[in-house]
C-alpha cells in the first residue's frame, strides 16, 4: 500500500484515484502492454491516445479486470486491486463504458440502468436503484426513452445509455473506451458535454480517444502510448509538441489530425 492512501486528502485535487505501476500483459509471444506506469488524480480527465495497435484497449481491459496483468500492480483509491475480479473493482469504485455499446437487449432503457444502480454498490435496495436510474436518465438526456427496449435506440442514445449505466454504479473513476467512435460531429459535441457533466459530478474520467479535437477539448492530461509502452505524458499542448509523439503518429497512416 502506498503512503498516499494514508494521507488525509487535504487537497482533494491531489488525491490519487488510480495508479498503475509497471503494468504488462503478454499474449503468447506478443507483449501487448509493456511496463505502463501512470497516476490519475481525483477530478482529473485523463486521455490515453496512440496509434492503432498501441495497446490502449488492452490497457483498458487490464484496468477494468477483463485481463490479469502479466506483471505490475494496479491501485484504485489506494487499494491494491491487481488480483481482483471485474465485479470487485466495480464495487471498489471503477466504472466502464464499452466502445461497442453493449446494452442488455431484452431490457428497457430504465431496466438497463437499474442493473448498474442495483449491483454497483452494496446495500442498494431495488426501489432505490429504480429511483436512481430514473434520475440518471434525466441527467443523461434519456428521460423520454425510459420505457423503450434498449435495441430501439440510436447510436448516440446507446452511448448515453452506456454512460448512464456505468454512472449508476457510482464510480469514482470512469473508464470510457472511444465513446465518440461512430458519432457525427454534432453528436460528438453533445457527448463531450456529457463527459464534462460527468466530471462536474466529481467523477474522474479516463478515456481512450482517436479524435484529437475531442482530446484537446476534454483532457486535463494526456498519456501517449506506442507499441505497448508509454511514449509521453503531459498536457495536450506538451505531448503534441513532442517530436517523438509526432514521429510515432507519422509512422502510421492516420497522422495527427489535430
Amino acid at each position: 500500500m502506498t503512503a498516499v492512501s494514508f494521507q488525509p486528502s487535504v487537497a482533494s485535487q491531489q488525491e490519487v484515484v488510480l495508479r498503475a505501476d509497471g503494468l504488462s500483459k503478454r499474449f503468447g509471444g506478443l507483449l501487448a502492454v509493456q511496463n505502463v506506469t501512470f497516476t490519475q488524480y481525483s477530478g482529473e480527465i485523463l486521455a490515453v491516445i496512440g496509434p492503432n495497435g498501441a495497446g490502449k484497449t488492452t490497457l483498458l481491459n487490464l484496468l477494468s479486470g477483463v485481463y490479469r496483468p502479466t506483471a505490475g500492480r494496479l491501485h484504485l483509491l489506494g487499494r491494491d486491486v491487481t488480483g481482483e475480479s471485474m465485479e470487485a473493482r466495480c464495487h471498489a469504485g471503477l466504472g466502464r463504458a464499452f466502445q461497442i455499446v453493449r446494452p442488455f437487449p431484452e431490457m428497457t432503457v430504465h431496466e438497463n440502468v437499474t442493473v448498474g444502480a442495483l449491483f454497483g454498490k452494496a446495500g442498494v435496495s431495488l426501489p432505490e436503484a429504480r429511483e436512481r436510474a430514473y434520475d440518471l436518465l434525466e441527467r443523461t438526456g434519456l428521460a423520454a426513452h425510459a420505457e423503450k427496449a434498449a435495441h430501439e435506440l440510436t447510436l448516440l442514445q446507446d452511448k448515453r445509455l452506456e454512460v448512464a449505466r456505468a454512472l449508476a454504479t457510482q464510480p469514482r473513476v470512469l473508464l470510457l473506451d472511444e465513446v465518440m467512435a461512430g458519432l457525427r460531429p454534432a453528436e460528438a459535441q453533445e457527448a463531450v458535454q456529457l463527459v464534462r457533466s460527468v466530471q462536474g459530478s466529481g467523477v474522474s474520467v479516463l478515456f481512450i480517444e482517436h479524435i484529437m479535437p475531442v482530446v484537446r477539448d476534454l483532457a486535463d492530461r494526456v498519456v501517449v502510448m506506442d507499441q505497448g509502452q508509454v511514449l509521453a505524458e503531459g498536457t495536450y499542448r506538451e505531448v503534441t509538441a513532442n517530436p517523438q509523439v509526432v514521429a510515432a503518429y507519422l509512422g502510421t497512416e492516420e497522422g495527427l489530425h489535430a
Binding site: 477494468s64 475480479s85 471485474m86 465485479e87 466495480c90 464499452f98 442488455f104 442493473v115 448498474g116
Partner: peptide
C-alpha cells in the same frame, strides 16, 4: 443477456 457486461456493472 451479457455476462461480462453484468460483471462490469458489479
Amino acid at each position: 443477456q451479457g455476462e461480462e457486461t453484468a460483471r462490469v456493472l458489479g
